[in-house]
Computed example of a mutant assay.
Amino acid sequence: MERRYKIGELAQLSGVPVKTVRYYSDLGVLPPSGVSETGHRWYTDGDHARLEAIRSLRDVGVGLETIQKLMQQEDAISEALRLHMETLELEMAQLQRRRALLAAALKRNDHLGYLRGARTLAALNARERQQFVGQQIDRMLQDVPADPVWVRNLWKGPIMQVPEDLSEEQFEAWLELADLMLDDTFIARSQQMGQEFWSQFPDARSRERFMAVQQQTEQMMADAVKRQVLPDSEEGQKCIQQVLSMFAGTKERSVLQHLALQQLEMIARHTEPRALHFWQLVEKVHGQTGRSAQVMAVHEWKVKALQVCVSEFGSALHDLHPESNPGHGT
């Protein structure tokens, strides 16, 4: 015979106040299995299990009205729990975004001013973020005679594919990236560097040749960095001279030294710390790490190797900065 419990006994067994059990009973969420001749409610082991289920559902935030319906259709509980879990995940994502928005605002001097502007960016969905990025990239490349393949592979591809679901860290990086892309001075500087760099190539053929050589030489220098070849070593100088000869189409040392000097001057003119930060933010938004650090390592190796190559022109290099950051240039 199934055991019977008075309301106080059931409350003690479950570790909840008597008034809570009575409240659930009055609502019909936990109706008693019976009532004694004296009018006292009594409950069974099945009611105890039911009460434990109610407590579990309440712990995860399910409302009593929903619980009452679920108790009438026990086969619907799994679906209800799944939907509730999805709701909680959405709420958590919203809280994470709000936290990221506040964290970003705290880094600004004008907290409220930033919040007013960033709220719109924070509310964008994945498709709207992609449209926004595309519009800003078009601004950055306006009147820049860049190679179409370079634009498609480097800009229109990976940057625009902003993930739909962003972690708190990714979302904070997205806000900072969007803020940077709305900075007119950064846009203007990007246009200036792009126009100066790509104007070196008078036609599509020269651009295509440059891109092919660029890809080969970047791989050569990346391999040197990976093998820890010092830029001022004999092997390092052979590597940088081979790089220069591939661009110049000759191995004549005076020509290579002159080209090395030109490249250092170009790097100095294109020093833009925000360019590196831009790519670091792109990496964070996409949940990637390491690519910008690798690019920077190759860039620094190249600068040092070029300086050694033209060391006899030391006075001409007096004002150049070896720690300059890569922008649009080679």
Rank of each mutant, 00 (worst) to 15 (best):
K226W: 04
R227Y: 00
Q228V: 13
Q228D: 13
Q228A: 14
Q228S: 15
V229G: 07
L230P: 00
L230T: 02
L230Y: 01
P231Y: 12
D232K: 12
D232H: 15
D232M: 13
D232I: 14
E234C: 07
E234Y: 07
E235K: 10
E235M: 06
E235L: 09
E235F: 01
G236R: 05
Q237V: 11
Q237I: 09
K238D: 09
K238V: 04
K238L: 09
C239N: 08
C239Y: 06
C239R: 11
Q242P: 00
V243I: 13
V243S: 11
V243Y: 09
L244F: 04
S245P: 07
S245L: 08
S245F: 05
S245N: 10
M246V: 00
M246N: 06
M246I: 00
F247T: 02
F247R: 10
F247S: 02
F247D: 01
F247G: 02
A248Q: 08
G249S: 03
T250L: 07
T250N: 07
K251F: 01
K251E: 08
E252R: 14
E252V: 11
R253G: 00
R253S: 11
S254V: 08
S254F: 00
S254K: 03
V255H: 10
V255P: 05
V255T: 15
L256Y: 04
H258T: 06
L259M: 10
A260F: 02
A260K: 02
L261E: 06
Q262C: 06
Q262S: 07
Q262V: 02
Q263M: 13
Q263H: 14
L264N: 09
L264E: 08
E265A: 13
E265C: 12
E265L: 13
M266G: 03
M266H: 10
I267M: 12
A268H: 15
R269W: 14
R269Y: 14
R269V: 09
R269K: 15
H270V: 00
H270A: 08
H270E: 09
T271H: 15
R274L: 12
A275I: 03
A275M: 14
L276K: 12
L276C: 08
L276E: 14
L276Y: 13
H277C: 06
H277R: 15
H277K: 14
H277N: 11
F278P: 10
F278H: 15
F278T: 12
W279R: 12
W279Y: 12
W279M: 12
W279V: 09
Q280L: 05
L281G: 07
L281Q: 03
L281D: 08
V282L: 11
V282S: 11
V282I: 15
E283S: 01
E283G: 05
K284M: 06
K284P: 00
V285A: 03
V285R: 07
V285F: 05
G287F: 10
T289A: 09
T289V: 06
T289I: 01
G290A: 03
G290Q: 04
R291W: 01
A293N: 06
Q294I: 01
Q294P: 00
V295L: 13
V295R: 09
V295G: 01
V295W: 03
